[in-house]
Structures are given as structure tokens and as C-alpha cells.
């Protein structure tokens, strides 16, 4: 009995050491609206974890807490060894260079061209000063998503799928170690959705990134996930590979895989 608890806690420590994101007992509510209750979550190095949950279940809130856009009410959010809620602005910026964030609504700056959109994170993080290097990085990121020809267009001139890919290019331009994708394939046709999913896999292989992916798109989940976490009623309801969860007999889980 005693030995068993000990191995469990040792296992827990190991998990914490390997993980690039470690969330423990995270609580977040808006007024009387309790979104996350003691939510636990881990992302290991090189892993693609999909967070699955109903609309409004707090998936976006979770990754916003991870990147420090929202402050949790209580609990620990540890990213690359740093406690996010305790960091000041500068320390937070230093972590954010290493963590890419793809917004659910793309969040492209619509007063700027595609080039300026991609240059923005580079310039703001004081990274590349040299004009040619900046240009090379921009073109590389655009070529990665197959949209090099749009470099001088405005976001309003692009289609929804193109905008998604530009947003992805902007997320990838800093070569982050961790990428948080908020619904990367929602609202796209199945073919474009698959292209984006493939792109995400390529990125993972090429740069050895770890990612958290929020998605309702079962095809995308199947393709990219190493592990799936079910966010139901504010807790981590279940966790396992796609194939494991797919055959689960639990009603709440089964609904997502119908």
C-alpha cells in the first residue's frame, strides 16, 4: 500500500520534470460562472495533445491562462519551468518568445500587410534587426504555409483558409518550442482542414515542437494527436490516445467520437 503511493508520487515528479507545461489545480471563474475546477494538465516534450470539449467549456480560457493572457483564480501554471502568474511583464515576454499562440479568430492585424503582420513579433521581441534576415524569415515562414505570393496583400484580401495559414505562419516565425493552437481547422472545408493538420505535423517534425491543440474536428484530432484530453465540466475528465478514447463506453466521451 505504502510502496504503491510512493511509486505514484515518484511517477508524478518524473512527469513534472519531463513536461514543458504543467498545470495543477487550476481554477477560473467569471462571476458565478465557474469554468475550470482543479484542472490538471501536462504537456510533455515533443508531444501533441488535443484538448477536446464542448463549446463554452473553457478550452480557450485554459490556453489563455497558459500564455498569461488571463490570470487564474488559483492553482499553478508552469511553462518551461516558470510560474506564469508570478511573472512580471518582461519575464512573461521572454517566455512568450518560446510559446506560439494561434488565435481562434486568427487575430491578424487588419491595418497591416501580410509582411508587416509577420514582421511584428520579430521586431517587437527585439530579435532580428537586420533587414535582410527579417525578410528571409518572413519568406521562409510564408513558404512553409505555401503562401509566399501573398506577402504584400492585406488580410482583408485573403480567404478564411489563407488567413488561417498566415496566422499560422506568424505563430511559427519565432520558431517557438511550444505551440498553442486554438481551433486551427474550424470553419475550413475538409480538404483545407487536412492541409492545416498536415502542416502542423510537419512543423512538429521539423522543429521538434510540443503543442496543445484545441479542436472539435475529429479528422484533425485523429491525424495530429499523440494524446487526447477531455475537458468536461471544468475538469480533466479523461485522457488517453485517440484509439483508446474512441472505444470508450463512457457516454460523455463517446458523444465526441460519434
Amino acid at each position: 500500500m505504502f510502496a504503491e503511493t510512493e511509486t505514484a508520487s515518484v511517477k508524478n515528479v518524473n512527469r513534472k520534470m519531463d513536461s514543458v507545461i504543467h498545470v495543477e489545480k487550476l481554477n477560473k471563474s467569471f462571476g458565478n460562472n465557474h469554468i475550470l475546477h482543479n484542472f490538471d494538465f501536462d504537456l510533455l516534450k515533443g508531444e501533441n495533445v488535443v484538448v477536446l470539449g464542448k463549446s463554452g467549456s473553457g478550452k480557450s480560457v485554459l490556453i489563455k491562462c497558459i500564455i498569461g493572457l488571463m490570470n487564474p483564480d488559483s492553482g499553478s501554471v508552469n511553462v518551461l519551468g516558470k510560474e506564469i502568474p508570478e511573472l512580471n511583464h518582461q519575464e512573461l515576454d521572454r517566455i512568450r518568445v518560446k510559446v506560439g499562440f494561434l488565435f481562434q479568430s486568427n487575430a491578424l492585424y487588419d491595418s497591416m500587410t501580410v509582411r508587416e503582420n509577420l514582421e511584428f513579433p520579430l521586431r517587437r521581441h527585439w530579435i532580428q534587426k537586420n533587414k535582410e534576415t527579417v525578410n528571409d524569415l518572413v519568406m521562409e515562414a510564408l513558404t512553409n504555409v505555401g503562401l509566399a505570393e501573398t506577402v504584400d496583400m492585406m488580410p482583408s484580401e485573403l480567404s478564411g483558409g489563407m488567413r488561417k495559414r498566415i496566422a499560422l505562419a506568424r505563430t511559427l516565425i519565432l520558431k517557438p518550442e511550444i505551440i498553442l493552437y486554438d481551433e486551427p481547422t474550424t470553419g475550413l472545408d475538409p480538404i483545407t482542414g487536412k492541409e492545416i493538420s498536415t502542416l502542423m505535423l510537419e512543423v512538429q517534425k521539423k522543429y521538434n515542437t510540443s503543442s496543445v491543440i484545441i479542436s472539435h474536428d475529429i479528422n484533425c484530432v485523429k491525424l495530429v494527436s499523440n494524446r487526447v484530453v477531455m475537458l468536461i465540466d471544468g475538469i480533466c475528465y479523461a485522457s488517453g490516445t485517440y484509439d483508446e478514447l474512441k472505444v470508450s463506453t463512457d457516454k460523455k466521451i463517446h458523444k465526441f467520437f460519434e
Partner: peptide
């Protein structure tokens, strides 16, 4: 419109106040 399309959040994660 920058606020509702999350562009302000995007600035924040790009190292900009």
C-alpha cells in the same frame, strides 16, 4: 474591432504592451 477580433491579445503575446 481590434479588441473583439483578439488583435489586442495578439499584440500582448508578441511582446508589446
Amino acid at each position: 474591432s481590434m479588441k473583439v477580433t483578439e488583435q489586442i491579445d495578439a499584440m500582448e503575446v508578441s511582446g508589446t504592451n
